[in-house]
Design a protein around this nucleic acid. Structure first.
Length: 668
DNA sequence: TGGACGGCGCATCGAA
DNA sequence: TTCGATGCGCC
DNA sequence: GTCCA
């Protein structure tokens, strides 16, 4: 069983110098056996920042280069990190039953996971004699938006340092729910809930389900896709070396190029981040001319006997709503299974897939092809991007009530005055973060200035108040955003010409039943199993490899956001989205746009704003005012541009504390 | 004390 | 048959 | 579980 700690360690491999490799191997071993003994001393000398004088906590925030260096040297506390990560993993499967509801400890699990991840990336060992100091440094560097650990986190670190264990984690690990989860975790589609059901029914492993007939599996609640995945639980749901991933991708690339000349095929996920192994193959498809339904046709082709790459389908892309050459909306093909209860890989493309394949294969722009954005629109987008100053937004100024420097979020555009009694439905979070510029600044201050709430109050108070905070006087102007339509996704507007074909959103997935509302391009997602014959010259004992494979396509105008989202890692994405949220933006794999409050948008519309054309990853970073990070730099979730602001903010906070109340340092 | 904690799509199931 | 809730998946 | 309003 590959533990979370081991896979984390694997993640760092590409950056290790030979000298560090041994250190990491030793730590990996230490992490596996839950011992911290072998790692601690090495980290202290190997870690460059440790040698720097550290006059104030904030000044140890690493530069990007240092961050990479820190990451490469892994954790100074591998045992602790492993323990916390295991606890998080275990809690994933633990049911919680309160009087109000039954569910799993998702947030608890997430809290452990997030904490463990930060620990795993922190090079300095925690030791009893300087624990408080180390924890403060750790908190400032890895949780810059708050700057302090929670009391529980401090407790757990202390517990581990003194006892070598975290009792809470052990408890969760030992629970039956967690054990059940562990037993079935390699089966696609069996999560915490079904794992517990199966365990209760007496099953103890995935292989014990293999012999069951389909009907029995169904009655046990094992979904059809899980049943199909069962056979591959061992081989497909483990990690694979890059070379194997590349072989699979080569086949996909070859077939995709035959089918859609000019197509761009990117291997995403951990592969793209440079890891030495990957859990699955992530294929991202983009076409400058924007074919609507790349995935079904490609999957169809890859599944043919003569290609034989795809042997099993787990999740299929549904039909997409498109406009054809005559401007008529129609469903464009997805895939569906054939044979009602078949557990075999019988399937068929919904008929249109064949015609699409044919027309595309002939090199003609068939009805499935769109040309969005137009060259002109693309140029506009590029031009607008070029006009955006590359200077990051002055977060400190924003935090302390100065000018908001975010190039796309000027106050006049975002927050025109509006009668305070205008009807509106907004969550408290939306109200606090987005509605009122002053509140927004306070929210940013809360992210930046941490360690005590007093600082946040001080920063918020520093901004001139013009209205009661309970009746926000401003809102996002939809009109203002519409006026920038040259840079926004064009499908929403009927001004596109002639033969263009818009792949519009499944708006019922987005927000409501009206699928005809033009909106966003609907990405297509496919999950399946790829079979790769043993390499030529391999010993006959070596059978074929089975790998999990995902194939996804987006509209060209979504290329940037899609690349960022499916390069990851997970925590980096969440940090980025959180950051975008604070700036009043919405970020996902399919769109980046201004957030609009519920009451300000038509019923059923989730965002009600024009997503920007984001064809390059750099656009995402630039529009957020962040420095571009290469894929391999996206493991950690420091937001670099926050660092200088943080250092200054820490200075300010320190000053204000010295002048004001003697607030205790919450990081200790 | 109540809401948020990432954002999205597909499969399944049961209620309407 | 449709629709919402739930479970699970992806990064 | 934790944070915030």
């Amino acid at each position: 069983m590959v533990t979370r700690a081991a896979s984390l360690i694997d993640s760092f491999h590409p950056w290790l110098s030979p000298a560090d490799a041994d250190l990491v191997a030793a730590r990996a071993h230490a992490a596996e056996i839950g011992s911290e003994a072998s790692g601690a001393s090495g980290a202290a000398e190997a870690q460059p920042a440790a040698k720097r004088p550290r006059p104030a906590a904030a000044s140890v925030l690493p530069t990007p280069a240092q961050t990479r260096s820190l990451v490469a040297r892994l954790s100074g506390n591998p045992g602790l990190a492993g323990e916390v990560l295991r606890a998080g993993e275990a809690y994933q499967g633990v049911k919680v039953a309160t009087s109000a509801r039954v569910g799993t400890h998702v947030f608890k699990s997430d809290a452990f996971d997030s904490f463990g991840f930060r620990l795993a990336l922190w090079p300095r060992p925690f030791r009893g004699d300087s624990l408080a100091d180390e924890l403060r440094t750790f908190a400032w560097a890895t949780r810059p938006w708050h700057g302090a650990l929670t009391a529980r986190q401090r407790e757990r670190v202390t517990e581990f340092v003194t006892t070598g264990r975290i009792a809470r984690g052990d408890l969760a690990q030992a629970s039956q729910d967690a054990t059940a989860r562990l037993a079935f975790r390699d089966v696609h589609g069996i999560g915490p809930s079904r794992a517990v059901e199966l365990w209760t029914a007496g099953f103890r492993s995935a292989s014990s389900l293999l012999a069951l007939p389909p009907a029995s599996l169904r009655s046990l609640g094992v979904a059809a896709d899980s049943a199909r995945a069962l056979r591959f639980a061992k081989s497909a749901f483990s990690r694979h070396p890059r070379a194997l991933i590349e072989r699979v991708a080569a086949t996909v690339r070859e077939q995709a190029a035959l089918l859609f000349p000019g197509i761009e095929v990117v291997i995403g996920g951990s592969f793209r981040r440079g890891q030495s192994t990957a859990g699955d193959v992530d294929i991202l498809l983009f076409h400058r001319d924007g074919p609507c339904a790349l995935v079904p046709a490609l999957v169809a082709r890859l599944s043919r006997p003569e290609c034989g790459l795809l042997t099993e389908h787990l999740k299929l892309p549904g039909p997409v709503l498109c406009m054809d050459a005559h401007g008529e909306e129609r469903e464009f093909p997805g895939l569906r299974y054939a044979g009602p209860d078949s557990l075999r890989s019988e399937w068929e493309a919904i008929p249109d897939a064949e015609s699409a394949e044919t027309s595309a294969g002939e090199g003609r722009a068939g009805p499935s092809l769109v040309r969005l954005p137009s060259d002109e629109q693309q140029r506009d987008a590029e031009a607008e991007l070029a006009n955006v100053p590359s200077r990051p937004p002055d977060l400190l100024a924003m935090a302390t009530g100065g000018t908001a420097a975010s190039p796309l979020l000027s106050e006049g555009e975002l927050c025109p005055a509006v009668p305070p009694d205008s009807p509106r439905v907004a969550s408290p979070r939306e109200t606090a973060r987005v509605l009122d510029p002053l509140k927004r600044q306070a929210a940013i201050a809360a992210l930046l200035l941490a360690p005590s709430s007093g600082n946040v109050c001080a920063a918020a108070a520093a901004a001139p108040r013009t209205s009661s905070s309970s009746s926000p006087s401003t809102r996002i102007s939809k009109q203002a955003s519409l006026s920038r339509s040259s840079s926004t996704f064009p499908a929403r507007h009927p001004h596109r010409q002639g033969s263009s074909c818009a792949n519009v959103a499944s708006t019922d997935a987005l927000n409501g039943p009206d699928r005809s509302t033009p909106g966003f391009h609907e990405p297509q997602l496919y999950c399946g199993i790829a079979r790769l014959p043993a390499a030529a010259g391999a010993p006959p004992s070596e059978g074929p490899s089975y790998l999990r494979i995902d194939i996804k396509s987006w509209h060209w105008s979504q290329r940037g956001t899609a690349l960022v989202a499916f390069t990851g890692n997970n925590r980096f994405n969440r940090a980025l989205r959180r950051y975008a949220d604070v700036l009043g933006l919405h970020l996902s794999d399919r769109a980046m746009c201004n957030r609009v409050l519920q009451g300000e948008r038509p019923a059923g519309d989730r965002w009600n704003d024009e997503p920007r054309v984001v064809t390059e990853e750099a656009h995402v970073f630039k529009e957020l005012g962040l420095e571009f990070r290469q894929p391999h730099e996206r493991l950690v979730f420091f937001v670099d541009q926050m660092h200088s602001a943080l250092e200054e903010a820490a200075g300010l906070a320190k000053d204000s504390r010295q002048g004001g109340s003697a607030s205790s340092n919450s990081a200790t």
